[in-house]
């Protein structure tokens, strides 16, 4: 009885900020407005399957997937370095890693805008040392760069926390039994870190697939991602039904991807087969 009472504020919070909005999104997504009021209709959802919008969705998923893979390739070694025993200053490095996250997300993205400009800092430096300037601002590369930069900590931190708790006697046992460093990693460390990898992938993929700020600023408004499409439906077109339908569609995609990744999480035997 007591415990229930403690959870009440949380329950109220959930209902107001999660259940009701979700219900509204669901409601708008399956209705259209006519002169007499709201009428049930699958038209908004059907519209999501038009080639124009499928292309936008495909592009969003592709860019988010590329960013997630890059984050994993970069983030895993970072997490390992941070946990290694003979790395004495790791708290300082961990701090250095987390401090940029205290700054506003928008400011950090704007910073890249000025860094990557034609006459920006990076190109000025490159030209000073005699190299060719790079022109990646307003391309897909810049969008991926922005995603990786902004979301990398979400990959590193879960992997780091799993690796930190890893029982070192297991690694010692592997070494005693004659496994070399690579075998120890493949057979022991990596399989045990899968839960961290899975939550890292989810935590990077989800914000990456829904972002609209990064693609607008660093992509120069060239390529609509699904986040831009939804934002446009709500803020400028004013078609909340189609916007909600797109959100439902996106939620389903995310649910499917979570389902797939969590399947690997529980399947310990097959975890190496993930790669």
């Amino acid at each position: 009885m007591n415990k229930k009472w403690i959870s009440a504020p949380y329950l109220v919070w959930m209902v107001i900020f999660i259940v009701v909005p979700l219900f509204l999104v669901g409601f708008y997504g399956i209705t259209v407005r006519t002169d007499t009021g709201f009428v049930f209709s699958l038209e908004p959802l059907q519209r999501c399957f038009e080639p124009t919008y499928l292309k936008v969705l495909g592009r969003s998923v592709l860019l988010a997937a590329i960013s997630t893979v890059i984050c994993l390739i970069l983030g895993y070694p970072i997490a390992m370095i941070l946990t290694s025993k003979d790395f004495s200053d790791k708290n300082i490095y961990l701090m250095l890693f987390v401090i940029p996250m205290w700054m506003n997300f928008l400011l950090r993205t704007y910073a890249w805008l000025t860094l990557l400009e034609k006459n920006g800092l990076i190109n000025v430096l490159l030209q000073k040392i005699g190299l060719n300037p790079i022109h990646i601002l307003y391309t897909n590369q810049a969008v991926v760069l922005g995603m990786v930069y902004n979301f990398l900590p979400f990959m590193v931190l879960p992997i780091y926390s799993v690796l930190k708790k890893l029982d070192s006697s297991l690694i010692e046992a592997a070494q005693d039994l004659g496994a070399n460093g690579f075998q120890t990693f493949i057979k022991v460390i990596f399989p045990l870190s899968i839960p961290g990898v899975v939550s890292g992938i989810t935590m990077v993929f989800m914000p990456a697939v829904t972002t609209f700020v990064i693609s607008r600023l660093l992509g120069g408004g060239h390529y609509y991602l699904i986040g831009n499409l939804i934002e446009e439906q709500f803020l400028s077109v004013g078609n909340w039904h189609f916007g909600s339908a797109l959100s439902i569609f996106l939620m389903i995609i995310i649910l499917i991807s979570i389902f797939i990744t969590s399947h690997y999480e529980t399947d310990k035997e097959g975890s190496v087969g993930l790669w």
Binding site: T52, Y53, K55, V56, H222, Y223, Y224, N228, E232
Partner: peptide
Amino acid sequence: RVWTEIKS
């Protein structure tokens, strides 16, 4: 519609 098609 046309604008979305241009941007996508």
